[in-house]
């Protein structure tokens, strides 16, 4: 046999892995995409997907989900960045940084039902902080208070409460993701710019931010996806009835709590997929840019 191209035996080893990925990831996700465009007789239709825009509670679920994810990603990114930067400032004891990273590793993974309960114990209607504020010196009822930028009184089980709870895993995630990038800001750059007469603002405007911006945006996208896909925390806080976000509606469809179009769940899942896919399209090229500064 003269063939320079032998039977690709080398590929056989990776077949089980790819077969597994096809069976348990690609075919089931493909099923969602196909089902989203199928009517009850198996024919092609746009009506399931267009129902997301035309049905008010579905559209509002997407609006609330996206707003919740954007807001918690924004505040999470801001506070996470500030904390990560604060931890490495001069004059801060050295043990703070590893303490933060270790704790963030745990907190970023501490989601779902237990997290929801921790906040119920803190600022729920009989939470420790709620009770404490009601007590002697303050006489402050948290649940009568309207937070700034909000049009309804505080409640742990509403948009603001769920946002505050989500920040418990969003801020640590930001801190973990952004710390290596902040480390990449070399001290020499700061010194060089100040030797050349730049102010602190000018340093951040012309050096710090341009270097960090791709990392910050890709971290923001991770945070967005993290909040967008979250189900358990919101489920435990709102008991599946209060705050209408997309994962909760999908969950209700699956458990049959609501009588609805059997393809609605798939259409909603497809909608989530589309939003996340757009995020990924921004994320991947940014990742390439950030790796340029990583050493």
């Amino acid at each position: 046999m003269s063939g320079r191209r032998r039977l690709p035996l080398a590929w056989l080893v990776v077949v089980p892995f790819f077969a597994y990925a096809v069976l348990y990831l690609f075919l089931p996700s493909g099923q969602v995409m196909v089902g989203a465009f199928q009517n009850n007789h198996g024919g092609f239709t746009f009506s399931n997907v267009s129902a997301i825009i035309h049905t008010s509670y579905l559209r509002s679920a997407f609006e609330v989900s996206i707003r919740l994810s954007l807001e918690t990603a924004f505040w999470g990114a801001l506070f996470g960045f500030l904390l990560a930067y604060a931890a490495i400032r001069e004059g801060i004891p050295r043990f703070i940084r590893p303490m933060f990273t270790t704790f963030s590793g745990v907190a970023a993974n501490f989601g779902g039902i237990p997290l929801a309960f921790a906040f119920i114990a803190t600022v729920g209607t009989i939470g420790i902080v709620t009770r404490f504020l009601q007590g002697a010196p303050f006489h402050f009822n948290l649940y009568n208070w309207t937070p700034p930028l909000s049009n309804q009184p505080f409640s742990l089980f509403s948009f603001i409460g769920v946002s505050i709870t989500y920040l418990y895993f969003q801020i640590p995630l930001m801190l973990l993701v952004i710390s290596p990038a902040i480390d990449g800001l070399r001290r020499e750059w700061r010194e060089a710019s100040s030797n050349l007469g730049a102010s602190s603002f000018q340093f951040w405007r012309y050096v710090g931010m341009p270097v960090l911006l791709p990392s910050i945006i890709s971290a923001f996208i991770l945070l967005f996806g993290n909040a967008f896909a979250a189900y358990a925390t919101a489920y435990a806080l709102t008991s599946g009835t209060g705050l209408n976000i997309v994962p909760i509606v999908i969950g209700n469809d699956l458990t049959g709590n609501v009588l609805s179009n059997p393809h609605e769940g798939q259409a909603l899942a497809f909608g989530m997929f589309a939003v996340l896919a757009v995020m990924m399209l921004i994320y991947v090229p940014l990742q390439r840019r950030t790796s340029r500064w990583a050493r």
């Binding site: 990831l25 089931p28 989530m272």
Partner: peptide, 9 residues
């Protein structure tokens, strides 16, 4: 494809 989509699929 987060868990909530995966479980539907």
């Amino acid at each position: 494809v987060p868990p909530i989509i995966l479980v539907v699929g």
